[in-house]
């Protein structure tokens, strides 16, 4: 057993999520902690109400523009190492409510997301799969070199600017260092 493996074994098997449910996906998140799909078996024994004590923020539900400053603030208050699972279609990209004027088209516009979990809502088994993928991701992180986790990098950013609620929209509409609209290669039409 190398030091890397032991270090990551401790980290990945005790990921404590933040009590953070926004909308319908939150109910499936709660259901996944209940007796049938018990998520505590995987190390997420307690959902901490305080961001200081939590490792994982499961953004479950639609992110509205009114709520975004609070979410980014909470993310900033979490202590490193911290991870984000974007649970459900709404947190990934706006979901069914994508046309809405008050809906943010995905929380990854402002904070870095580690695992995207599609579904509307994803079943509790899917959430457990996402948690297990996160645990695998954590267990695979090396301690040195380029791929090392953010909390071991001296220049790793752990706090992100909070958008300001302007007159029509959030300012800025996204954090350009984290998210850019994907360049989709389109066939050239004559």
């Amino acid at each position: 057993m190398s030091l890397n493996e032991i270090y990551n074994w401790g980290r990945s098997n005790s990921v404590w999520p933040l009590q953070f449910g926004l909308a319908c996906c939150a109910i499936e998140m709660i259901a996944s902690t209940m007796a049938r799909y018990d998520m505590a078996r995987f190390g997420s024994e307690v959902f901490r109400p305080s961001p200081r004590q939590a490792d994982l923020m499961i953004v479950s539900g639609t992110v509205t523009k009114k709520m975004v400053p609070q979410i980014v603030r909470l993310y900033n208050q979490m202590a490193e190492p911290k991870y984000v699972i974007a649970m459900g279609a709404c947190a990934i990209s706006g979901g069914p409510f994508k046309q809405g004027y008050n809906v943010l088209k995905g929380i990854d516009r402002y904070i870095p997301v580690d695992i995207h979990l599609p579904g509307c809502p994803p079943k509790p088994e899917a959430l457990i799969h996402a948690l297990m993928s996160l645990q695998k991701m954590i267990a695979d992180q090396p301690l040195t070199g380029e791929g090392r986790p953010r909390h071991l990098k001296p220049e790793g950013a752990s706090e992100f600017p909070i958008p300001h609620q302007g007159e029509q929209d959030l300012e800025p509409p996204c954090n350009p260092h984290i998210w850019r609209p994907p360049a989709i290669p389109r066939p050239v039409t004559a």
């Binding site: 400053p69 001296p154 220049e155 752990s158 706090e159 992100f160 600017p161 909070i162 300001h164 260092h177």
Partner: peptide, 18 residues
């Protein structure tokens, strides 16, 4: 708590809000 360097790693400025 300020983090180290980087373009996004500034203390968040809440210009305009509250």
């Amino acid at each position: 708590m300020p983090s180290h360097g980087g373009a996004t790693a500034k203390v968040p400025t809440e210009a305009g809000a509250p």
